[in-house]
């Protein structure tokens, strides 16, 4: 029997599509970690809040979808800044595990908020992406996955440019590499913290809207964050490049495992990679190898 190359191509493309979303959410995670050293377990729930905000604005308030997305992204940014100010900043200087637990609690609270306002019934975001099938050569790519990938790629490009050239981005990188030095150079470090949470929440909201458009929204959609956690650990918690590469890599591996072995092997493949990477490079593929001298 001939090997079905078209099947392989479709599966790899599907994997890249999913990987784009992993990379985008991973970017939001890394941004917070890089600037504030907080392992934010609530990233999946922040993504969920963005999607629900968009849903609420588009359905209950009848906003056109583009406006709903815009307002939801800005709203999520404000929520991100507020969370940082109220829940994270008071924890400055506390042990990392305490801050980590605060984010676990935060995730729980965000799920509760969603269930209180929108109940736990699964819902659909209004359709807003073109529905004409996209063909790359002979391979079919679902339009939502294709456009979702495009949006993710553009956003990642913008984020990288901002990091590189904008003053705020430079301040963020400076804070990430050495907080004390950043302080002494006149950088407003608390403001950088706030900025990182704001931007990360906005990126997560966009990822949430795309994930919601593809798979629907529910109060359990935060589990998407679990795969993202694997992505950032594999890529290196503080590496933007790592999040991008690992996002695409995990996406493709999951898709290949699902396509050739079966759906039950998707998560198995993901976590096998996690274990191998942790054994070989505990700081991730591209993460900073910190050497502690005793």
């Amino acid at each position: 029997m001939d090997f079905d190359w078209l099947f392989l191509a479709e599966i790899v493309l599907a994997g890249l599509g999913a990987g784009g979303l992993y990379a985008l959410t991973g970017l939001a995670f890394v941004m917070i970690y890089k600037a504030t050293r907080v392992v934010n377990l609530a990233i999946g729930e922040m993504l969920m809040i963005g999607a629900y905000l968009c849903f609420g604005l588009a359905t209950a308030m009848n906003m056109p979808m583009w406006l709903a997305i815009l307002v939801a992204v800005i709203g999520s940014g404000v929520a991100g800044a507020t969370l940082e100010r109220v829940a994270i900043r008071p924890m400055l200087g506390e042990s990392p595990i305490s801050v980590f637990m605060v984010t676990v609690g935060l995730a729980s609270i965000l799920v509760g908020v969603v269930e209180l306002i929108w109940t736990s019934e699964p819902r659909r975001l209004p359709e807003f992406m073109p529905s004409a099938p996209v063909m790359i050569g002979e391979a079919f790519v679902p339009p939502k996955v294709f456009y979702g990938f495009l949006v993710a790629a553009v956003l990642i490009g913008v984020a990288l440019a901002v990091f590189r050239f904008w003053r705020g981005g430079v301040a963020l990188r400076a804070t990430a590499s050495d907080q004390q030095a950043a302080y002494s150079m006149g950088i407003n470090v608390p403001k950088v913290f706030s900025l990182s949470w704001t931007v990360a929440a906005m990126i997560a909201a966009i990822a949430g809207v795309i994930v919601g458009a593809v798979g629907g929204i529910s109060s359990t959609m935060g589990v998407f964050g679990l795969s993202v956690l694997v992505v950032v650990i594999v890529g290196g918690l503080d590496s933007v490049l790592g999040a991008l590469v690992a996002g695409l890599f995990i996406g493709v591996v999951e898709s290949l495992a699902g396509g050739f072995l079966g759906g039950e092997f998707k998560l198995l493949a993901t976590f096998m990679i996690l274990i191998v990477v942790l054994l070989v490079r505990p700081y991730g593929l591209f993460g900073t190898h910190e050497i502690e001298r005793l």
Binding site: A14, G17, A18, F140, P142, V211, T220, M221, G263, K266
Partner: peptide, 20 residues
Amino acid sequence: EIMTPPGAVDVSTEIAKLRR
């Protein structure tokens, strides 16, 4: 028979199988 992992978002891989 197609099994999807819990919480699966994208189903493109599964659709590729169904199509065949």
